[in-house]
Design a protein around this nucleic acid. Structure first.
Lengths: 328, 328
DNA sequence: GTGAAAGCGCTAACAC
DNA sequence: GTGTTAGCGCTTTCAC
């Protein structure tokens, strides 16, 4: 491999010191009162030979990397990939690069990843935390590492976060099933998890059912199950409880639910899903959705994180963004 | 921020030299004949105080980062996110971490990203190249940077790549529309792009149409258009050409196409899409698909890249993976 | 205005 | 067996 030029090569070739080169490259010509002639001589030469500073060395020296780490559960989930997409654009506009990783329900791996990023001098973290991450996040906080949680929070942990109005969202979705669709029995399918966004979504459902004076039908699916088993569980749930409408707490459950409805020709007239999906308007029955405001969520996350990285934050920011109910 | 321990702190606290600590930490105790007592004393202490080596310094010193960079066009595309997911698992099993970035059709950004990764001493690249990336990839190759392209190749560029059998795939998909579905007029909707996987898909369609002795109907959509305009263009294309079946060259076009068909109630009986999607079996009409073998593609990519990073490769590897036609 | 040199944390050749 | 030290490429204090 052709040896890359270093700053001292530049200095040597130009017959000047590395200090001068460094100052010029870091836009300190004015401040350090370096002559315009010298400045442009260096800049021209650097451009000519295509020299690029080694970021590793720079980060090692300054302790800053202009990079933020984004950790999500599963990047192939439509919600997370659209968030990732937005965050990257926004961060880029603020001069930051984003590296992301999926944790894929593997806590050991997630912890290792966080450590890895930390070791690489990541300037800040954006994390959709899984259940066992409390310790490691607490640890980051103790070390004053800038961090913003999203999608869910961790109980008893004071930190920045940006989440959606989960309770209100499912409340409205459930209410719509009773009021607009004349559903008589609405079931709620969620995952077997203590993540608090799921608790919120369940609560919204229960409030609406209460208010309608109806009975609850709740199914918690074990995420580790394979797709076929999930489909069968949903079928049994729908039939056993004689449901005519179902609300799913996530978009991937809604897809499984729709599969069950199609496959076994179940008598469900209306479906609502938390989180939208490009194809929900195209299926039959159409799936209404409680859509999170991905754009606003992303904006808040990046804004809070950048403020904190710059040391300008005053206390933890905790933001709750309304959902939009999309009736189909 | 609590100052992090460095290797010299460890050495000082233990009253020994950094070399000894370094050797022990890098599993060279045996090789360097360091006593077991010393070895376990160091290991225990390191564990106790939770010392972690600074990867930045390590990388700066060794020139290796045990990290590979994955660059895709759009991480929210189902094909790319599932590839990303697989690659990450496989790379992790080989001791590598993966950082990914979406290029989002911004070439300047893509180039900058590649440079950034290169500066960070990324050990190798996995790239789904966009059209203008030839120079910068050529540059990497010139510097012997390990690199594997996938999904498409770049004309006149000798490099490793892993792609799908695009021609054969669309050939079979098109043939099926004529033979199994009795389609009389099959249209092909693709994007206006010179990427060669798209050329291959077009060619497969044309061969099958030729063989069936029918006429071509081809629509190239400008990717920059908004969704509504795309939907309208597809509608006009279908109506103007009196099509009764359509083949889409990517999954997101198929989604737009389905939207058009639903919205304007178009008389299309059969749809085929290149790339599968979890919901294609759930819509009406169901969408058959030419599915790329994500698992095998990912395996080949990682295997080729790791071999090259370890300096064990003998010439460029160029792999073409068959697609599977899923009839619905 | 510009340069010398220390030092970020680590590895590894060399010394003893 | 273990320690000393140079140096990876960079920033920045201090000296002139």
């Amino acid at each position: 491999m052709k040896k890359r030029l270093s700053i001292s090569d530049i200095a040597k070739n130009l017959g000047i010191s590395v200090t001068t080169v460094s100052f010029i490259l870091n836009d300190k010509s004015k401040e350090k009162r370096i002559s315009d002639a010298m400045t442009s001589r260096v800049l021209d030469y650097v451009k000519k030979v295509g020299y690029k500073p080694n970021q590793l060395a720079k980060s090692l020296r300054t302790g800053k990397s202009k990079t933020i780490g984004l950790l999500v559960e599963d990047i192939s989930n439509a919600f997370f990939s659209s968030i990732a997409d937005q965050i990257e654009k926004l961060a880029y506009n603020s001069g930051y690069h984003v590296v992301y990783c999926s944790m894929n329900n593997d806590e050991g791996r997630a912890k290792e990843l966080i450590q890895l990023f930390y070791d690489r001098q990541i300037d800040g973290f954006i994390i959709a935390p899984t259940e066992g991450l409390k310790d490691v996040i607490q640890n980051l906080l103790k070390n004053n590492v800038p961090i913003v949680l999203f999608d869910r929070t961790i109980e008893d942990l004071e930190t920045n976060y940006v989440i959606s109005e989960n309770i209100e969202g499912t409340f409205l979705g459930t209410q719509s099933l009773f009021m607009d669709c004349d559903a008589t029995k609405v079931g709620f399918v969620t995952i077997n998890s203590n993540q608090n966004q799921m608790k919120g979504r369940l609560e919204g459902y229960m409030r609406a059912v209460d208010e309608a004076g109806k009975d609850f039908s709740i199914k918690k699916i074990n995420r580790a199950l394979d797709e076929d088993s999930i489909v069968e569980e949903i079928r049994d749930f729908i039939l056993d409880n004689k449901l005519d409408a179902v609300l799913f707490s996530t978009n991937y459950l809604a897809v499984s639910g729709l599969r069950a409805i199609k496959k076994f020709n179940l008598p469900i007239r209306n479906i609502v899903s938390f989180d939208d999906n490009a194809v929900f308007s195209l299926v039959d029955p159409p799936i209404s959705s409680i859509a999170q405001n991905v754009k606003r969520i992303s904006e808040e996350i990046v804004s809070i994180l950048v403020t904190e990285i710059n040391g300008k934050s005053k206390g933890f920011q905790q933001v709750v963004i309304p959902c939009e109910f999309i009736k189909r």
